[in-house]
Amino acid sequence: MTSPIPLRIDFVSDVSCPWCAVGLASLERALQRLEGTVQADIHLQPFELNPQLPAEGEDATEHLMRKYGIDIGQVEANRAVIRERAASVGFAFNMRVGSRVYNTFDAHRLLHWAELEGRHLALKKALLRAYFTDGEDVASHAVLARLAGEAGLDGDEARRVLETGAYAGEVRSQERLFQQRGIRSVPATIVNGMHLIPGGQPPEVFEQALREIAASANH
């Protein structure tokens, strides 16, 4: 019996990126199908879609209309597409008129700490669910600390990380690194530091790409 092929996967994404939620759910489904074939070591890498946003955020519909030069009908049509794709991978996308978009830098700092604690995927999924499914403020330290606790982390330590500004330098450094490597849009899934799978692909696209990469890595 052959051993699973180890693959390092850097998943570059933002907490407020809907296609990142779709992509992560798709990637995890693909990896379930590849169980026994590949052994994935997933690292979450930070990317801020809207680093200039104030902590209180702003109306998401107005933000998208201004950012992309589209009207409210196009915003809602895009949301319908995302809602359908998200549902196909078991993720509930509930963004609507009245939803807000927030600054995600503190969420990325908390995710950096969570990776050191081995709970980064649990926290990432809690953050995506809190934002896209439940409409919560993912810039709020109270919300972030609660989600950390729900993800199996120490809530008091999470509050300390948030209040002290810990890991800000590390997050900025990782953001610069992947920008320098040419990442301009997310999600971006980088396998073994060289193979890029762009966008929130369906599970079968991830599965085929990872099979091919694993096969080439085995030669």
Rank of each mutant, 00 (worst) to 15 (best):
V38M: 06
R66I: 05
G135Y: 11
L111I: 10
R109L: 02
Y102S: 00
E163N: 15
G69V: 06
A148M: 05
E84G: 12
R159S: 11
L162K: 08
G90E: 04
A148V: 06
A92M: 06
I82W: 07
E62M: 03
G152S: 04
L31N: 01
L53E: 05
Q45G: 02
H141N: 12
E56Q: 14
D106S: 13
A25P: 01
A122H: 13
L34M: 01
R79V: 03
G149E: 05
R79S: 06
A87I: 05
H141P: 06
V138Q: 00
E157N: 09
A142S: 14
E163V: 10
I70A: 02
L123T: 07
Y68P: 07
H63P: 00
L147D: 03
W113N: 07
R159E: 11
D134H: 15
D41Y: 10
L111M: 14
E163D: 15
L111K: 05
D154T: 08
I82F: 07
D156A: 13
V81M: 13
A25K: 10
L128H: 05
G149V: 09
A114Y: 08
M95A: 09
M65T: 01
L153S: 06
Q74F: 00
V89P: 13
Y102P: 01
I82A: 03
D134M: 11
F91K: 05
K67H: 10
E150P: 01
R33V: 03
Q74W: 03
D134W: 15
G73V: 09
L31G: 00
E48G: 08
D71F: 09
T164D: 12
A107I: 01
L123E: 04
M65R: 11
H63M: 11
E163G: 12
I42V: 11
L121H: 09
V101S: 08
L128A: 03
A80K: 13
F105H: 08
L31E: 00
L64W: 02
E150S: 10
G90N: 10
D134N: 15
L144Y: 04
T164C: 10
F132N: 00
E48A: 13
R160E: 10
A25L: 00
Y68G: 02
F47H: 02
L49S: 04
P51S: 05
R159M: 12
G98A: 09
A122R: 09
R29K: 14
D41K: 12
P54K: 14
L24S: 06
S88C: 02
A80P: 04
W113G: 02
A30S: 02
E157K: 14
W113M: 13
R79P: 02
T104P: 03
A80F: 08
S88D: 06
D41C: 03
L116D: 12
L121I: 13
G69K: 03
S88F: 01
E163M: 12
R146A: 10
A126E: 11
V97W: 06
F93P: 00
H141C: 07
G118A: 09
E58M: 12
E115M: 12
E48N: 09
V138F: 03
R160V: 11
L147W: 14
V101L: 11
N103L: 03
Y131G: 01
D156H: 04
R85I: 10
G135C: 07
Y131P: 05
Y68R: 14
A151P: 00
L147P: 08
G118C: 11
L27A: 09
G135V: 10
L34N: 00
L49G: 07
V89L: 13
G118E: 05
I72C: 01
E28Q: 15
R85E: 08
